[in-house]
């Protein structure tokens, strides 16, 4: 049986990838590339209710709860945010609500992207992390009431 990657594993993986870069240019090039590769969200999902509004850029996010795991999809109108969002999805998607709620997401700091979390007013990234966790806690509550 192949072992499923933990959130921690994926975080390490990303930190390793970024350790290959020694300039900011290269880091951002990589993030932009990931942003461009993120599968776009269908227009029907880009509605007000799925919007996570930052001051400058907008993120749309939807989540789904399947077999005890949360799956996320998202998009943004800004490419760099999209790249960061794609990393968050890569790290968190496919895990249980508890794992997601416990995730510290230290990789963001370790790859030098903490400023994007701190600038809460200028982009939706921190709001995005909060929304991902919020969705996870809602699913977790649903699970408890069902059992």
């Amino acid at each position: 049986m192949t072992q499923i990657k933990t959130i921690q594993d994926t975080e390490e993986e990303i930190i390793d990838e970024f350790s290959l870069f020694d300039s900011w240019d290269e880091k951002y090039e990589y993030i932009i590339d990931m942003g461009k590769k993120l599968k776009p969200l269908e227009d029907e999902y880009k509605k007000e209710g799925n919007k996570i509004k930052g001051c400058q850029s907008t993120v749309w996010m939807v989540s789904e709860f399947k077999d005890g795991k949360v799956f996320y999809r998202a998009e943004s109108d800004a490419v760099i945010v999209k790249g960061l969002v794609s990393m968050l999805i890569r790290v968190l998607s496919g895990h249980t609500p508890k794992e997601i709620l416990d995730a510290k997401l230290e990789f963001i700091d370790k790859i030098g992207m903490k400023q994007h979390l701190a600038q809460t007013r200028s982009n939706g990234l921190l709001a995005m992390v909060k929304q991902m966790k919020l969705d996870a806690s809602v699913y977790s509550a649903q699970q408890i009431t069902k059992n």
Partner: peptide, 12 residues
């Protein structure tokens, strides 16, 4: 191009 992306890359 989104202005925010330009702002981030100019800061770089």
């Amino acid at each position: 191009v989104h202005p925010q992306d330009l702002g981030i890359l100019l800061d770089n």
